[in-house]
Simulated assay, not measured.
Amino acid sequence: MGALLSLIPVFSQLLDKILPDKGAADAAKLELLRMAQAGDLAQINAEMTIATAQADINKVEASSTRLFVAGWRPFVGWICGLAVGFKFIGGPVLFMVAQAFGHPVELPVIETSELWPLLLGMLGLGGLRTVEKVKGAA
């Protein structure tokens, strides 16, 4: 729908050339804007419906007492936390201690480019906190 909005000036000029009556051209332009806006609103509504459904699923999962239903998020969170801790604290300390005792150590390479989106998404740091602050909800 964003592509349609970017083409409105082009369609507007085209309508000016096709429709000789200024009033008819303006009415057609207004209808074009309404159609573009309705499409954008429909897309936003669909995305909101999906997000609401996912939030409902998250509530059901979080209220479960079964480990494999409610325990996967904490498990993934701990794994991410341990990986970040090893990458930036444990690994360098292990390397320095091993070097001090004369043992060369090859530390495993942790690919953080795949880790950060997961960790930041779990922490809710994908911009939603900013939205909460702006709306005064936080």
Rank of each mutant, 00 (worst) to 15 (best):
E61H: 00
V76C: 01
Q99E: 15
P9L: 13
K17D: 09
V134M: 04
L128D: 03
A24C: 03
L5V: 13
S6M: 03
L41N: 15
S113D: 15
A98M: 04
I18C: 05
V10C: 04
V76P: 00
L14Q: 13
Q54F: 11
P104Q: 12
A3C: 08
V93F: 05
L41Y: 12
R34T: 04
L5F: 10
G85H: 10
N45W: 07
I44H: 14
A51G: 00
T52D: 06
M122N: 03
A83N: 03
P92A: 02
E111R: 15
D26Q: 11
F75G: 09
V84T: 15
P74G: 08
L7M: 09
Q54G: 07
F95N: 05
A3K: 14
N45H: 14
N58A: 07
Q37L: 10
L94M: 02
L30E: 14
L107K: 02
Q13E: 12
A46V: 03
K133I: 12
K87N: 15
P9I: 07
A137G: 00
L19S: 01
V97E: 07
L32A: 14
L119G: 00
R66H: 06
M1I: 02
K29T: 00
V93Q: 00
L82T: 12
A36R: 05
A3V: 08
L94R: 05
A28C: 00
M96L: 06
Q54I: 14
L125T: 03
L125C: 01
A137V: 12
L94S: 06
M1Q: 10
C80F: 12
L5I: 05
K59G: 11
A28Y: 03
V84A: 14
R73W: 01
A83S: 02
A55F: 10
F101R: 03
L115M: 07
D56T: 13
V60C: 06
G90R: 02
C80P: 00
R73V: 09
A137W: 02
G90T: 04
T65G: 08
V134Y: 09
L41A: 07
A100D: 07
V10T: 06
V60W: 07
I79H: 06
L14T: 09
E106V: 11
L107N: 06
A42S: 05
L41C: 13
N45L: 11
